[in-house]
Nucleic acid binder design. Structure first.
Lengths: 384, 384
DNA sequence: TTGAAAGCGCTAACAT
DNA sequence: ATGTTAGCGCTTTCAA
């Protein structure tokens, strides 16, 4: 009743065409059962070498490639882990000739992708990536979820209600944000501690007092945590603790960093001794503006960023910042997922905080003025 | 006979647990047929709103997520395209604290991934990525091939014999290399023309005469094409045309670029007026070494690279190079694959050559000595 | 070591 | 607008 009749179209010389060959075709061609064909691919050693060769030869001749879908359905695993990330770049934006475009350089998500891919590969897994799109039943997320053994989600990518449903069916790890759902795994970086250490350095080691913090309008959890760390340091130093950032940039881009800096310089009253930016991009923008305005860094004002993007070490002066281990985060996520997938019984959800590293460079008055990487102490990580 | 009996484990309050729910469970719970459940996800509009809500509610309650594998098997499409790339970075290498690690910056493959993901997303596709591993029946490549509607392969990633088989079953586009297999699509960049233009610029506009070309030991097709372009320019100028590169670096890294430069400086005879490197990494290494040696660039010697990596514009002096549109290549690949997948009948294989762009900067004696991007004319692309 | 048979969970005609 | 019924191509007991 099944498809032995299922055609392998043949041209004159016997090469397969048009229809995609299946196990049945290979089995027929090599004179074995479909079970044996399957075994050749799943556990070659359980098949006699002679038989194996026969099957492989037939497969080659037919152009046979096992269907991943059929395998996945039958075996209930895919050997794939996934990643959903926000669509920073509008996919419809023109790629143009790629002017200053390149400079965006290594994105947040690129690093995570790289880390995950690497760790996945070590375990024989492939990585499925998809930037978030609209919600709804047929969102990309749902598609991803149905096709992987587990996946990671960058914060603010997938609606919580969707995750609520999905995370019951497949392991999900939330990246860089609050956990949101209590039975999900969760990895974040020490945003608060990082900014605290950085600010403390400005206060204690450089003796600065009038600081300004530039955050973002939409106040992501990450930026929020950084601001908290900033406040912690001020509080500890006995300085007035601001309720809100001195400025909130609509976007955390270089251009906005420039604009924010200009605004800050134009404000009445004494100029801040340090500009603490919520990310590197903005800080780099500030560097440009300050140079134009004839304000020296770090002599007249210190500048700090957050993220540790490659650009931060090549600007002049090199930027003091807090390095986020995004690559590492990707690796941890992959390892965690793969462990979840292979573990016999469900263990309690994990929450992991990755240590960040304060990188002291020229823009705060430290380190060598040029390249290199004088770095401070790594913060201890927490687990639980 | 089928699984209406298929258990939805229930706890006291009726929440589903343990077993993954299927269409049958959702159908039962909402009092419709499995076909209707399927319709709710595939074409919501073909179902009465009231029914749809009922089904969705049940799905939510049960924690139902459609199985991608089952869908793929039944519908014979996956909505996924793939990419196989070489494993530049050893996955087992320690990620360490990430010292100078970051500087590797945006890799070749990152850009392609980004381009493909973006184009894929525009069409509602997700992207499956896998770095190549060993060959054999159970290679990652085979896994990818079986799970996608089509995929792209970076040159020298997958054994030709494997591709031979696989490309018969699913559309494959070869990236950046020779086509290898005649029925495969193929996209490459104008390596030869790019290096030709660049060399010609050195010869014609700067009046240089004694050039040296630094290639690679393994002589990839890309590097080979670049060398050809270099020779074309020399020939055209009536200069002696070398049989082989002046030096072949074992790896195209910065360190090797330094070493090569040292070797070249130590050679007897007049020093070259220009060092033409087969890629940017090596050229950057050269810049360092030349500075150490007290040789001025471009006054004493011009230096050029190839690729247009971000680093090339921040080094001192900024590097004259040929920018490869890798992002664009990713996009083209994705578009091509998706077209192949959706096209009614097979059209002849495509071979596309993407134009590159000579970027004239300080290291050859052009442009502003600092940042920015004075760029020359784009080369025309070819199609066919 | 190999074969036979029963699904895996879904989509896609075809009915109704 | 909804239900019925076959498979999609593979893995997997269970026998032989």
């Amino acid at each position: 009743m099944n498809a032995l009749s299922f055609g392998v179209d043949r041209t004159g010389d016997g090469a397969a065409v048009s229809d995609t060959p299946t196990v049945y075709d290979v089995a027929e061609q090599s004179g074995v059962s479909i079970a044996t064909v399957s075994r050749v691919y799943r556990s070659p050693d359980s098949v006699r070498p002679a038989t194996r060769e026969k099957v492989l030869a037939a497969a080659r001749a037919l152009g046979y490639v096992p269907s991943g879908s059929a395998r996945g359905l039958a075996s209930r695993t895919t050997g794939i882990i996934g990643l959903c990330f926000p669509d920073y770049a509008d996919p419809d934006a023109d790629s143009g000739a790629g002017e200053g475009d390149e400079e965006a350089g290594t994105l947040y998500s690129d690093q995570i992708i790289r880390g995950m891919e690497r760790a996945a590969r070590r375990h024989g897994y492939a990585l499925l990536i998809a930037a978030s799109l609209a919600g709804g039943p047929e969102s990309l997320v749902a598609k991803v979820a149905g096709r992987v053994d587990g996946f990671a989600v960058l914060a603010r990518t997938v609606p919580t209600e969707d995750l609520e449903v999905i995370s019951r069916r497949v392991p999900v790890v939330m990246l860089a944000g609050p956990r949101e759902i209590d039975h999900m795994d969760h990895i974040e970086v020490a945003n608060r501690d990082g900014e605290y250490q950085l600010t403390r350095h400005l206060l204690a080691d450089h003796g600065l007092r009038r600081l300004a913090f530039i955050g973002s309008a939409d106040e992501s959890p990450d930026v929020g945590a950084r601001f908290e760390g900033y406040r912690d340091a001020l509080r500890e130093a006995g300085l007035p603790v601001p309720e809100a950032p001195d400025l909130r940039a609509p976007l955390m881009t270089r251009a906005e960093g420039s604009r924010a800096t200009r605004a800050l310089l134009d404000r009445p009253g004494p100029r801040p001794e340090a500009l603490v930016f919520a990310n590197d991009q903005m800080a780099v923008g500030a560097l440009h503006t300050l140079e134009e305005a004839g304000v020296r860094v770090p002599e007249d004002v210190a500048v700090t960023g957050f993220d540790g993007i490659p650009l931060s070490r090549v600007v002049r002066p090199p930027l003091t910042t807090v390095r986020q281990p995004m690559r590492r985060m990707g690796e941890e996520a992959a390892e965690l997922l793969i462990q979840r997938v292979t573990e016999a019984q469900r263990t309690p959800p994990v929450s992991r905080v990755l240590p960040v590293e304060v990188t002291r460079r020229g823009s705060c008055g430290c380190g060598e003025p040029s390249g290199g990487g004088a770095s401070g102490a790594a913060l201890p990580g927490a687990e639980g």
